[in-house]
């Protein structure tokens, strides 16, 4: 996925000279995860900008750039450090178009690695996508594999509005897929049915897609797996069509349970598809605890709990 993201940045920057990349260590170092590798050498320090530390400053400056007509792509080194920039995102990036009744817009992408499973230090493992999905005016995109990552990042960069682009660092280098060299886009707001099935609908995103696939392999039933890919705007049509077919739903995310995005999906299903349901909607999620350090992280992350959850829904 790292090289797919890198390719997306390369391709888009070749196509549009208004694209700039800003962040800590994105220049000569190529980013701590190497997503921006080679960009500085190709595009120079005017477009690949190593910034001082200061997430709020980075995003604030990027907002000014976006308002003036550039297309900044910000890298926040870890999503756990994005909170200082939350004010800029919620108070300005998301509001600029509305505040000015369309005179200004904020075509900004904030890329940031999220999620657990890499035995990291504190603050390096969280999944706080629901915070961003709650903010009117933002879009939230989370790819699960390299092919989608490239196409979705290209779309995010071309999008006229601010996009939070959450990258599942656990599968940064874990999944291999064919990725075309040329630029291509995958529309924001379209879910993907990864696997068709008739008995149960599994809905997930990001790094948990891989876990869901493994869980499905362990059960003796026909499961439909949906990668929502975009939390906001959510492709609810694809979800509802599947629920109508299967009548059983399991939503999987590694983010904490309460107020997680699974709750939003469950509500929508209840509002629009209640009579199609054969069983209560099941959520398999992270716990409402602080994400633990390495020794306990296996207990936190949904793994065999997914299989158990699917079985429970099937047996209801």
């Amino acid at each position: 996925m790292v090289s797919a993201l890198n390719q997306a940045l390369f391709c888009e920057m070749e196509l549009d000279e208004n694209i700039v990349v800003l962040g800590e260590d994105v220049g000569i170092d190529g980013g701590v995860f190497r997503v921006t590798e080679g960009l500085w050498q190709r595009f120079g320090s005017e477009r690949i900008i190593d910034t001082p530390l200061g997430e709020s400053g980075i995003v604030g400056v990027a907002i000014g750039m976006a308002a003036y007509g550039l297309r900044p792509v910000v890298e926040i080194q870890f999503s756990g450090f994005s909170y200082p920039a939350f004010d800029q995102l919620i108070s300005h990036a998301s509001r600029l178009r509305n505040r000015s009744r369309g005179r200004f817009s904020c075509p900004l992408v904030v890329r940031t690695p999220y999620g657990g499973g890499v035995r990291a230090l504190e603050h390096h493992s969280e999944s706080m996508e629901a915070l961003y999905a709650h903010v009117p005016g933002l879009k939230v995109v989370i790819p699960s594999g390299p092919y989608d990552a490239k196409g979705l990042l290209s779309s995010a960069i071309r999008d006229p509005d601010p996009v939070i682009f959450y990258e599942p660092k656990r599968v940064y280098r874990a999944i291999k897929e064919e990725v075309p060299e040329k630029a291509y886009t995958i529309p924001i707001g379209e879910a993907k049915v990864i696997q068709n099935g008739n008995d149960v609908t599994i809905i997930s995103w990001g790094a948990m897609i891989r876990e869901c696939k493994e869980a499905i392999d362990k059960i003796d039933a026909s499961a439909e797996l949906i990668d929502i890919r975009t939390l906001k705007p959510l492709d609810f049509k694809t979800i509802l069509n599947s629920v109508k077919k299967t009548g059983r739903v399991v939503i999987v995310h590694e983010a904490p349970r309460t107020g997680g995005f699974g709750a939003e999906i469950a509500s929508l299903i209840a509002e629009h598809g209640l009579l199609h349901l054969e069983a209560p909607i099941m959520r398999v999620t992270g716990f409402d605890t602080i994400f633990p350090l390495a020794k306990l992280e296996k207990s936190y992350l949904p793994d065999e709990r997914i299989t158990a959850g699917i079985k429970k829904v099937l047996e209801f």
Partner: peptide
């Protein structure tokens, strides 16, 4: 806040101290 083109004033920023960063980004972009 939707001022006519040519009036080079950015919209009012109410959260105190947040807008100088926009000025910096604006100026670098220009």
């Amino acid at each position: 806040s939707n001022l006519p083109k040519g009036i080079n004033i950015f919209p009012t920023s109410i959260p105190v101290g947040t807008q100088p960063a926009h000025a910096v980004g604006f100026a670098i972009a220009a």
